[in-house]
Design a protein around this nucleic acid. Structure first.
Length: 282
DNA sequence: AAAGCATACAACCGCCAACCC
DNA sequence: GGGGTTGGCGGTTGTATGCTT
């Protein structure tokens, strides 16, 4: 037995949710709780697949979901977390109370991504995307027509390439090749904390066991090396006595993507949050 | 006014890991 | 141990709306 059929294949409803459907789902979950998504639609009287119900609940109906404009502070946090975590939207969303991974992802893709793209790429992105979409449509049509003959078994789609890149922990450009802008997603290997300004009584006290010196750090780091097993990142606490820390992410990307070399000013709480995320990843 | 284009975002898809039997 | 199920994730698509020509 292969994958279980999705809603599209068993004639269930798709597309935007009506108020009535929202109410049915909300009422059911309030009465019976979350979980059992597969059997839920039937029990709740919904003509939707479980996956669709879960998505609707998690992203829009769940209590405490913040709708509307993402504030400048939130955007700032997203930028910093994205720089450190990459497209790990659920992790990022976990740091923004009331925001969902889907919302942050959408916001990033529509509002923020452009800020980090080269202008010429930005100008061409849509055109390329449209062109590609057209080509894919044509391919799909062609494949549909040829389905009975099974005559085109080795088409490599954009998704195929991206999945391969994902498996290699690499984000390349949309043309498939590894360009100058290729970023190796940071692997959680080691955390280096400069201890000069680390106070014994601050929240990083427990991290000292894995603190390594700059000398050791630099010995392992080979400038220009694209080996993604480089040390993950370096935390520097600067001016900690004023409660202001600084995360320097330059070592994550040093040798990977020079355009991303920058330091990220942040407060101590932010630093702590990010560090917690990394502890989970380690 | 209308057609075409761009943007925003809700929803879907495919994949994967964890879990269960 | 292996196959099926489930929940969760990130990428992508579809479509409504706004804007431009």
């Amino acid at each position: 037995m292969g994958r279980t059929p999705c809603c599209s294949k068993v004639g269930l409803r798709r597309g935007p949710w009506s108020d009535k459907e929202d109410k049915l789902l909300t009422d059911y979950i309030q009465a019976h709780g979350e979980g059992q998504w597969r059997s839920m639609p039937k029990k709740a009287g919904l003509l939707r697949c479980g996956k669709s119900c879960r998505l609707r609940w998690m992203n829009y109906l769940r209590p405490g979901i913040k709708r509307g404009n993402i504030t400048a502070d939130e955007e700032d946090l997203i930028i910093r977390l994205h720089t450190l975590l990459g497209n790990r939207w659920s992790l990022i969303a976990g740091r923004l109370p009331g925001r969902t991974d889907n919302e942050i992802k959408n916001h990033w893709n529509t509002h923020m991504q452009k800020k980090f793209q080269k202008p010429e790429i930005l100008q061409n992105a849509r055109k390329k995307a449209s062109k590609k979409a057209e080509e894919e449509k044509k391919k799909k049509k062609k494949n549909k027509n040829n389905k009975n003959n099974n005559s085109n078994p080795t088409v490599t789609t954009l998704s195929d390439r991206e999945n391969k890149q994902k498996k290699n922990n690499v984000v390349g450009d949309s043309d498939g090749g590894i360009s100058n802008n290729t970023i190796y997603m940071p692997k959680p290997v080691r955390v280096s904390v400069s201890s000069s300004s680390l106070r014994k009584d601050n929240s990083f006290h427990s991290t000292e066991s894995i603190v390594s010196s700059h000398e050791e750090f630099d010995k392992e780091a080979k400038p220009g090396d694209s080996n993604p097993t480089w040390p993950l990142f370096e935390l520097e606490l600067e001016d900690i006595s004023h409660g202001v820390g600084q995360i320097c992410d330059r070592d994550i990307f040093r040798g990977y993507d020079p355009s991303l070399q920058c330091s990220i000013p942040t407060n101590k709480d932010m630093l702590e949050q990010v560090y917690e995320e990394y502890l989970k990843l380690l």
